[in-house]
Amino acid sequence: MIPQIINGLIFASILFLVAAGLTIIFGILRVVNFSHGSFYLLGIYIAYSITRFSQDPVLYLASPFIAGALAGAVGMAFERGLLSRVYGRGELFELLLTYGMIFVFIDVFRIGWGTMPISDPTITFKLGTVSIAGYLMPLYNLYLITIAAILALVLWYLLFKTRVGMIIRATSFDKEVTSSFGVNVNRVYVLTFFLGCFLAGFGGGLMLPVTGAWIGLDIDMLILGLVVVVVGGLGSIKGALVASLLIGLVRSFGISMFPAIELAIVYVIMIAVLIVKPSGLFGGVEH
C-alpha cells in the first residue's frame, strides 16, 4: 500500500502543478494552452542543463526553481510576441497557435538536447532513503511531494489572500469591467502566463531525477493535464487539486494491479465524471 500511495502522491503532485497552470491560464485568457506539456518538458531539459555545471545537491534542489522561472519567461515571450496578436479572433486561432508551438518546441528540444532520452537520478542517490512502515523510500520522493504541497499552499495564498490574486480573480470573472476599474489587463495576461508556465516548468524540473525526459512526454503530459482539468472543472484550482489526487492515486494503484489498462482507467474515470457532472467536479464555467 505505502509504495503505491507515495508513487500516487508523486504523480498527483506533478499533475497538480501542470493542471493548475493550465487552469489558471484558461481562467484568465480563456485559452487552453496546448503547449503546456512542452513547457513541462522544457523545465526538465533546463534542469538537466543546470545540473551539468556541478554535482552540488543544492544546485539540484534549486534547479526546478530556475527551470520554472526560465519556462515562465519563455511563456511570457510567447504570450506577448505571438498569442496576444490573435486575441479577439476566436478561440480556434488561439488554440492553434499554442498547438503549433508544440512542434516548434519538439525541434528546439532535438537541437538543444538531442533525440535520446535524458535522465539524472544523482540527487536521489545523494539524499539516500528513509524507511516508512518498513518500506525504503528515496528521501527525494518525499521532498518532491512536500515541495509540491507547499507550492499548492503558496498558490492558494497568492490567489485568495493577496492584491495580485484579487486582480487575477477579478480579471477571470470579467475582463472588461476589471479594466474599467484601472487594471491593465494585458499585464495580468503576461503575469498569468508566467505563473502557468512557471508551474509547468517547475514540475518538470522536479521530475528530472524521477523520470528524466524524452520527446513525446510533452504530449503525454498535456493529455493528462487536460484530463485532470476536465475532471476537476475548467478554471477551478480546487478542482485541479482534487482531480490530481484522484487520478494520481488511481493510476498508481492501477499500475500495480491492472498494468495493461492503467491509463485506460484514468480515461474511464474522466468519462464517468463527465456523464454524471458534465462541467467537472468543481466546474461552473461552461460558456
Binding site: 484579487m166 480573480r169 477579478a170 470573472f173 469591467v177 479594466s179 474599467s180 476599474f181 484601472g182 491593465n184
Partner: peptide, 23 residues
C-alpha cells in the same frame, strides 16, 4: 485605454451590475 481613463477620474457602473460574484 479603459484603465488609463479610470485613473483620470471616471467611475463606471455597467448595465446588469456585473459584480464579482465570489467577492
Amino acid at each position: 485605454k479603459a484603465h488609463e481613463r479610470f485613473r483620470l477620474g471616471i467611475g463606471y457602473a455597467p448595465e446588469d451590475r456585473r459584480l464579482y460574484p465570489d467577492f
